[in-house]
Amino acid sequence: MIDKENSMKKTLITLAAGLVAAFGVVSAQAADIGLETFGGKQIVPENPKRVVVLDFAALDTIREIGAKETVVGISKGRIPQYLAEFDTDKYANAGTMPEPAFEKINEMSPDLIIASARQKKVLARLKEIAPVFYMENDYENYYPSFEQNLLALGKIFNKESAVKEKLAQLDNRMTALAKLTAGKSALVTIVNESRISAFGDKSRYALVYQKFGFTPIDKNLSSSTHGNSVGFEYIAEKNPDYLLVVDRTAAITDKANNAQTVLDNALIKPTKAAKNNHIVYLNAENWYLAFGGLQSMDTMISEIESAVK
Rank of each mutant, 00 (worst) to 15 (best):
K127D: 05
A92D: 14
G95K: 08
Q148T: 03
Q148K: 13
E140H: 06
N137Y: 10
F133R: 03
Y143L: 01
F146H: 04
A124Q: 14
Q81M: 13
M135F: 01
V122D: 08
Q81P: 01
K120L: 12
L123G: 09
V132R: 05
P144V: 00
L126M: 14
S75Q: 06
I113E: 06
L150I: 06
V72W: 05
I105R: 14
N93A: 09
L150H: 11
E107M: 12
P100Y: 13
P144L: 00
V71I: 12
V72R: 08
A94T: 05
V72P: 02
N137S: 11
P80T: 03
D87T: 05
N93Y: 14
L112I: 06
A101M: 03
A84F: 11
A130S: 15
G73C: 11
M108V: 08
N141I: 00
S109W: 01
A115E: 03
D87K: 14
A92T: 10
P98M: 11
S75F: 08
F146D: 00
N93W: 10
Y91T: 03
E140W: 00
K121V: 02
V132I: 09
R78W: 02
A84Q: 15
I114A: 12
Y139F: 15
A124M: 08
I129K: 14
E147W: 02
V132N: 02
I105T: 08
A101R: 11
A117M: 11
D111E: 13
V71H: 06
Q119K: 08
Q119A: 09
P131Y: 11
R125P: 05
A115C: 10
T96A: 12
